[in-house]
């Protein structure tokens, strides 16, 4: 099976966010594989181990994304591709990312594409379904189980807590939800092997795509931090009185009861 994973690097979940000049400050920030994309990498490796074939991890991003791609290779992916847009694309959006991916996949023979259901930074969750639509693939989002048999896939899909039992056909794109699997940590031999695995770097010029096709459809005009919350009020006194006071505050001050 030819399996591809869409991977994005994101800020570490523990990172504090600061803003300067209307942009997120990323100097010195720790980056990780987007946590939902980790489920995708793990699932891709499992499916390959079961059905044979090859796992290729693809990132549309900058030079620094190489680190996260190497981590995916160390986990067990076979190949990685970095489509480096740093020099060619000032501001992209989901539309332009999918344009690039569509051009990349144009000449590829693909059975399965896995992606995270959302990236924890920009959190649009659009790239997977958008790409599937362009490629004419079936897609299922927020999956928690995947069993492939020949040309059919049986899937558990999380729908706000309920589970849908879905059947569909390959070629297929799925987006991964927590609960699908437990992503492995790269082993030491895995890390050593990853250094020798192929990591191709492409630029937009290498794809059948004109730069003027890459006009984003949306634009961020400002980024700001939420207003600092004033320190809350921790109540005092006998527990029973505190509870009475809380109810009165919720009713009269906060007006939510």
């Amino acid at each position: 099976m030819n399996i591809y994973v869409l991977l994005k690097k994101t800020f570490d979940t523990e990172e504090k966010i600061s803003v300067s000049n209307g942009r997120i400050e990323d100097d010195g920030a720790e980056f990780i594989i987007n946590p939902y994309d980790e489920y995708a990498v793990e699932e891709a490796i499992k499916q390959r181990d079961e059905h044979g074939g090859e796992v290729t991890v693809v990132t549309v991003g900058d030079e620094d994304s190489e680190k996260q791609l190497r981590t995916a290779l160390a986990m067990g992916a076979d190949k990685a591709v970095l489509i480096n847009t740093e020099d060619d694309l000032e501001d992209g959006d989901q539309y332009t990312t999918v344009k690039i991916l569509e051009a990349f996949f144009e000449d590829k023979d693909v059975d399965l594409i896995l992606a995270g259901n959302v990236a924890i930074d920009e959190a649009s969750g659009q790239v997977g379904p958008r790409l599937a639509e362009r490629l004419g693939f079936s897609y299922v989002t927020t999956i928690t189980s995947l069993a492939i048999d020949g040309n059919t896939a049986k899937i558990d899909k999380d729908v706000e807590g309920d589970v849908e039992k879905v059947e569909t056909t390959l070629p297929l794109l799925v987006t991964c939800q927590q609960g699908l699997n437990e992503p492995r940590y790269p082993s030491l031999p895995g890390i050593m092997k990853a250094k020798k695995k192929p990591l191709d770097e492409l630029e937009i010029d290498d794809l059948d795509l004109d730069e003027d096709e890459l006009e984003p459809k949306t634009k961020t005009i400002d980024i700001f931090l939420p207003p600092q919350k004033e320190a809350g009020r921790v109540l005092n006194g006998e527990l029973e009185d505190q509870v009475k006071e809380l109810v009165s505050l919720l009713r009269n001050e906060a007006k939510v009861l």
Binding site: I17, A123, K217, T218, T220, D222, I223, P226
Partner: peptide
Amino acid sequence: TVFTRPIYSGKAFEKKVITDG
């Protein structure tokens, strides 16, 4: 028309516009 949306898990917000269509 300006849309405000949370990013970075609600640690920040962005104002966004649609430029075309």
